[in-house]
Amino acid sequence: MHLAYPAVLAALLFCTGIYGVLARRNAILVLMSVELMLNAVNLNLVAFDVWLRDTLHAGQALTLFTITIAAAEIGLGLAIVLLVYRNRGSSDIDRLTALADPAGPGTGGPADPGAGADQDEPGATAGDEKAEATA
């Protein structure tokens, strides 16, 4: 079998994953896209292992490890997403803008992105109340 088939398939899957990571709003969908990217890498590992006929089976062993790590990652990732959802009432990635530089006094204009962060605060408190109600 041509090596180009699995290699091209892996590349396209990987790019699909990139698109999902960058474009999806829900954090869990982002995690799914991450899984796609990991699987693309796995496919590459297996294909090259088979092509090279590696006596150590390094590609397959690494694939197993990647799968394990992916499982661990998905567990931790989901825990984090749940925690964020519990604290902020939302798991939308583009609303978690705590990394933004808040508008400085006087230098930032009204169109400053920090304003978005400010608007985020009432939503967070509302989310808290929602979480309390859920509990």
Binding site: I18, L22, L96, T97, L99, A100, D101, T107, P113, G116
Partner: peptide, 24 residues
């Protein structure tokens, strides 16, 4: 530099996906 800083600050949206997109 203050104006430059304000311009650069506009890029700091806090949206991780934007950062990651630029990185990739």
């Amino acid at each position: 530099p203050g104006l430059l800083g304000a311009a650069v600050r506009k890029a700091q949206t806090g949206n991780v996906q934007t950062y990651l997109g630029a990185l990739l």
